[in-house]
């Protein structure tokens, strides 16, 4: 009887390991939140944040998980950081009180409330975005979410692209509306190594 139980326990071990939550730390060199916003009703302008930290975890068996991303608001870059003969560059203006107000609000955060699964891996995440001290729900869907091995250290590694939309005016960012569009498309390219 004891042998049978031990055999069953050994047989079940791989499933128990599989069901354990997997924790990942965001790789800041391969994680860049970026966004698009309409300009004067003409083009869709792109910008990104160069400094991001965070963690994510998921449990394939329990279909649960969590995501926490912290973005350095002063790290914004829209490709215009050299002012030349102008008084200020666009990026300097975006860091000031009119937009991201980096002195008063040095970070933007996203904290999940629910991770959505479509099979073994997550397909989206619902959570709260905090921007300019205002917290509002934002849903991100994963355009891709893949897991494999880090070729350098053979650690488990997952990454993908998450995309979602929100209105900046909902967070009190109203400067230059409607010349600079209200709807922001947020796209986070992310990778993380398993802890």
């Amino acid at each position: 009887m004891k042998r049978t139980l031990a055999a069953l326990a050994l047989a079940a071990l791989p499933f128990a390991v599989q069901a354990a939550p997997e924790h990942y730390t965001v790789d800041p060199y391969h994680t860049y939140p970026n966004f698009t916003v309409e300009h004067w009703g003409l083009s869709m302008m792109h910008g990104r944040f160069d400094k991001t930290t965070g963690k994510f975890s998921f449990d394939r068996a329990a279909k649960s998980g969590s995501v926490e991303i912290v973005i350095d608001s002063a790290s914004i870059s829209t490709g215009d950081n050299v002012k030349g003969n102008r008084p200020r560059s666009r990026d300097e203006h975006l860091r000031a009180a009119d937009f991201f107000n980096a002195a008063e609000f040095p970070t933007l955060t996203f904290k999940s409330t629910k991770v959505v699964f479509g099979g073994e891996l997550p397909t989206g995440v619902e959570g709260n975005l905090t921007l300019l001290g205002v917290t509002r729900p934002v849903a991100l869907s994963f355009e891709r979410f893949k897991c494999g091995k880090n070729p350098f250290n053979q650690k488990d590694r997952c990454g993908g692209n998450a995309v979602g939309k929100f209105k900046r005016s909902d967070f009190g960012m109203k400067t230059a509306l409607p010349a600079v569009g209200d709807e922001i498309t947020l796209n986070i390219e992310f990778e993380g190594d398993r802890d």
Binding site: P87, R88, E92, H93, A96, A97, D98, T175
Partner: peptide
Amino acid sequence: ALLSASTGY
């Protein structure tokens, strides 16, 4: 303020 990157002020 305009020269200092603040259209709000």
